[in-house]
């Protein structure tokens, strides 16, 4: 069974009630191992990777420049891994069905919805979240522009908007307000800050700063 050696690079708060949760997790994983049929064990010799029901499998990722070794159940989405195991709660869970864009992160430089992919499917990939784009205390140019142009109201969609905006500019899809609106359409803002978001992206694009 894979050892729990994850979260070494991230602070992890353990509340009292979590001790019980850990016990349940461990005992259910042991139960799953005991119940794993021999056929699955045999298949493991031929397959690149395998995990039984309830069984955690090892996962290597690079998150915001740090390499991490984790062990994860197959059904954990990348979003839930980031928020619940790594405490990277900047990435938001909005709809959890790929309809709002609040969970947008970069995987190997490409923006995706982290709610609709399994963490184990990202083995070996480089993940960048909203926590990883500033340079120390110096905000990313797109973050600066969102503040300057008031590109948010409640702020819940903002991490996803900013991750999407950075990718939109890098892709070369920020040539005009119309193009920006089309290529930012996967990020919904219920406060309706769209005009200011478009202005922020146009400002960064026209400023010519590398993003």
């Amino acid at each position: 069974m894979p050892q729990e050696n994850d979260q070494q690079n991230y602070p992890q708060k353990k509340e009292k009630h979590e001790a019980r949760r850990d016990f349940l997790k461990q005992s259910s994983a042991m139960m799953a191992l005991a119940l794993t049929p021999p056929l699955v064990m045999k298949a493991a010799q031929h397959d690149e990777a395998i995990a039984g029901i309830f069984e955690k499998m090892p996962l290597s990722l690079e998150i915001n420049g740090k390499k991490v070794q984790l062990s994860v159940e197959p059904r954990v989405t990348l979003l839930d891994l980031l928020r619940e195991q790594l405490q990277l709660t900047g990435t938001k869970k909005g709809c959890d069905h790929g309809q709002c864009g609040a969970c947008t992160v970069h995987v190997n430089g490409q923006r995706i919805n982290s709610c609709l992919t399994l963490a184990v499917m990202q083995e070996g990939k480089k993940i960048t979240t909203i926590e990883g784009i500033a340079n120390g205390d110096q905000l990313h140019p797109v973050q600066e522009a969102f503040i300057k142009h008031d590109g948010f109201q409640c702020g819940y969609c903002t991490p996803g908007q900013i991750m999407s905006a950075v990718a939109c500019i890098r892709e070369g899809h920020a040539g005009s307000p119309t193009e920006i609106r089309e290529f930012m359409s996967g990020n919904i803002c219920r406060c309706g800050a769209y005009d200011n978001i478009v202005n922020a992206i146009m400002d960064v694009k026209q400023g010519g700063t590398a993003v």
Partner: peptide, 9 residues
Amino acid sequence: NQFSYIRPA
């Protein structure tokens, strides 16, 4: 739901 996962080569 819970499921098992394989990544065949």
